[in-house]
Amino acid sequence: MLKTKQRARYNKSMPTWVEKMYCKTSYDDRCDDKRHDGCHDKRHDRCHDKRHDRCDKCPQSEKGHGPCCKEPIQCNALDPTNCHPFNPNIPRTLREVLLSLINEQVQVTTPFGPITGTLLVVKCDYIVIVEASGAQVLVPIDKIELVSEL
C-alpha cells in the first residue's frame, strides 16, 4: 500500500488510462458508469457480486472477515500493483489458481502430504478433490502449500 504522500503524488501524476483501470470509489459506492466502464464490466462487479456478497453470508464475518475476505479489496486500492493487475491472465492468489483448475487432475500438497485427484469445487475456504478411488477429500485452502496440474 502506498503511504499518504506517495498516494497524493501518485494521484497527481496518474495518466487517464491508468485512472480508468481501477475504481477509486468507496467499496459500497458503485462506480460512475461512464468513467469506470472497464471497472464495472470486470473486477468491480466480480468483487461486489461474489466476494462481498459471499462475505455477508460467511458466518465467520462476525469475527471481522471470513476467510474469503482476506484477499485484498482490489476495487479500493490506490496502488495499481495491488489493485488491478496489468496482466489479468496472471493469477494473484492461490484461490485464483485453484479456480482455474476446476475439473482438472491436480495434486495439492499439505504439511501432512499430497492429495491427488480431480478438483471438483473451490469454495470460500476449502476445496473438494475426488480421488481415483471415488473418495471425496475436503482440503482447507489455508493448508495448501503447493498446487500442481497433472
Partner: peptide, 27 residues
C-alpha cells in the same frame, strides 16, 4: 451442493466415516 465454508460442509456430514489428517496425525 457444497456449503460455502469448511466447517459448514463438515457439519452436513456428521455420522460419516472419515479420515482426518493434521500435520502429524492421521485419525
Amino acid at each position: 451442493m457444497f456449503e460455502e465454508t469448511f466447517v459448514e460442509e463438515l457439519a452436513t456430514r456428521i455420522g460419516s466415516r472419515v479420515e482426518i489428517a493434521t500435520d502429524n496425525n492421521f485419525i
